[in-house]
Nucleic acid binder design. Structure first.
Lengths: 208, 208
DNA sequence: GGAAATTAATCAATCGTTTGATTAATTTTG
DNA sequence: CAAAATTAATCAAACGATTGATTAATTTCC
């Protein structure tokens, strides 16, 4: 008799991420994680040392996979505006494909606790920001873009996307959109991308 | 001899708000609240019934004081753009004067738990959104504003401000700004207001 | 057979809450 | 007015439940 093989380690990671997203780090108990993953409680400490170890591992994996996604954009011989539009598209897609994690990340970021996590997230975000900063700054220097408050423009781009993800379903969109519904998610994605591309085009390139 | 009169009820509320902001709801114990406020632990339940009761009370007071701040704007006989600029100014000031609370609110909003709180926050935000929505929609209808994705513009305005508040000190601004430093806060406020007013002016009124 | 994986049982610590008693202030009563 | 009765505020201690973590025994797998 062969019982179905399940990777308990992976099961714990997935269950923990789901629960951390739903009820927060402090709000999730190791017993819940064990139950949800189908593993024994002791396995959590066996594989990850502690509850926080699970959390750190989730963050590390996520951040690592994020880092490998970008950086190709800046090699292309395209205009600054086109670069920016590609970054927006990539950023919207990435975040709306990982809404639960993104929520969790922002929650963790707004806590002064857990400095190690804070620094990790900060570094990951900082990398994205520098990419956008470079594109816009280059655009300004070569005269394609208006002179704007670059950091605030970045705050606008990132903030808009985060707002779409975090705001309550019934508040943000007109009717009852649900980001868990793939069809709705696609619509929201396209709207966000179209809006941000239009906004940046008008704001950065309109001659006064 | 008159010992200094301290309102324990108020002390608990203030201590709890501070701690909830810093370490989150689940991350704060009733013992911490008691210690920080100088009140006995039992007073928490005596006055508010439960830990959650404290939280609900904080939210109610804040939301109530928020609600009494707006609504005068729409009576003035000024242009849609000017109305919008006043709303932006008010919104930036309000949020940057209550950064800790605003962080806490967003954290709570991103949790699927505590539906009562969720609904309260949602309603409060919804009110603000409707105000902005009305202004922009009116502007579009009377031809002053371009036809834009209104809800996305609102997401941009709110998201930008939230991003400024939540993003790590060392990430968002160029150098080491600190929102707890009044001087820095003033600068950030002015930058955010100037940026959003400029952005909305260009985006909403530029004729293509 | 031996290392790795998994288990049930248990640990001390902490959680939010409740208790019964005490003090201080206020109201009622004679 | 002053004694008695009532109420509100505060306290130390303890409650049962749950927390994250650990133990020691057992099973699985190569």
């Amino acid at each position: 008799m062969k019982t179905e093989k399940v990777d308990k380690r992976q099961a714990i990671l997935e269950a923990a991420e789901k629960l951390f997203c739903e009820t927060g780090y402090e709000g999730t108990s190791t017993r819940q994680i064990a139950k949800e993953s189908g593993a024994n409680m002791a396995m959590i400490n066996y594989y990850f040392g502690s509850k926080e170890g699970v959390f750190v591992e989730i963050m590390n994996e996520r951040i690592a996979s994020f880092g490998s996604q970008l950086k190709i954009i800046n090699e292309d011989k395209i205009s600054a505006l086109e670069k920016l539009h590609r970054v927006i598209e990539g950023y919207v897609n990435r975040i709306l494909n990982n809404t639960a994690f993104h929520k969790m990340m922002h929650r963790e970021l707004s806590l002064t606790q857990r400095p190690e996590m804070y620094d990790k997230i900060k570094d990951a975000m900082s990398h994205n920001m520098q990419l956008i900063d470079r594109i816009i700054t280059d655009g300004i220097e070569d005269g394609t873009f208006n002179k704007v408050d670059v950091r605030m423009v970045i705050a606008t781009i990132m903030g808009t996307i985060t707002n779409v993800v975090i705001s309550p379903n019934k508040v943000m969109p007109c009717s009852n959109f649900d980001l868990n519904n793939p069809k709705d998610k696609k619509i929201i994605k396209e709207r966000a991308i179209a809006h941000l591309q239009d906004l940046t085009t008008v704001y950065l390139t309109t001659k006064k």
